[in-house]
Computed example of a mutant assay.
Amino acid sequence: MYEPIRTKSVHTMADATDADFPHRSREEELDIQLAGHLAALLTVTDELRALAPSADLDTAAERLAGQVTRLRGGVPPTRATATTRGARVTALHRRAHALAGRALVVAASRADTAAAILSAERMDAHSAALVDPREPITAG
């Protein structure tokens, strides 16, 4: 009525293969995630630089590239060229603000002060760019 199991348990097989599988620490995973967020922010920053050049964006792009290079162990990021001709600058600032926020969360969770400060500065800069300075309505 009962036939014994002839194959190894799934749990036993998993334990045996764990030695062959490379594992990353939580810090390494967070480094990878943070580098990805900062690289995405760098891409949007490069697009903004092409559409609305400014010294602030140039400085931010270089700082972002430096952080991505550091997090990737010396491998510099691939830089974007302007391909979004019809992209609105406001939409790019919103996207950059969101990406900087994600990078800030990851940087804070891994206690990376330099990346957290840079992300917070970029959030502030993109928030300021999103504010629509309207002229006061004058009677007349």
Rank of each mutant, 00 (worst) to 15 (best):
A50K: 03
D56C: 09
L34M: 05
D18M: 10
D20Y: 15
S25L: 06
A39Q: 10
D46R: 12
Q33G: 10
E27L: 14
L34K: 01
L51D: 04
P53H: 05
T59D: 14
E62R: 14
A39I: 05
A55D: 15
E47I: 05
D46V: 09
H23Q: 14
D31M: 03
L41G: 08
D56G: 09
D15Y: 10
T17R: 08
A40G: 09
T45K: 03
P22W: 03
E62D: 15
D56S: 12
L34R: 03
E28T: 07
E29R: 12
T43E: 12
A39E: 07
E62S: 15
A52P: 05
S25M: 06
L34W: 05
S54I: 12
A16Y: 09
L48D: 00
S25Y: 06
E27A: 15
H23R: 12
A61F: 00
T17D: 07
A16K: 10
D31W: 00
T45L: 02
E29V: 13
L30T: 02
A60F: 00
H23W: 11
S54Y: 13
D58I: 08
I32Y: 13
E27S: 14
F21T: 14
L42C: 00
L57W: 02
D20P: 07
D18Q: 11
E62C: 10
F21A: 12
Q33R: 13
L42W: 00
R26H: 14
P22M: 02
E62Y: 11
A16F: 08
R26G: 14
R24S: 13
L34D: 02
D20F: 13
A60E: 02
L38P: 01
E62W: 10
L51Q: 06
P22L: 04
V44G: 01
A50H: 07
T43L: 12
H23V: 13
V44Y: 02
D15I: 10
A61I: 00
A40L: 09
A61H: 01
D18R: 11
A35K: 00
T59G: 09
H37I: 06
R26W: 15
T45Y: 01
S25P: 03
A16T: 09
L42V: 02
A61P: 00
P22Y: 04
P53G: 03
R26S: 15
T45D: 03
A40S: 11
E28R: 08
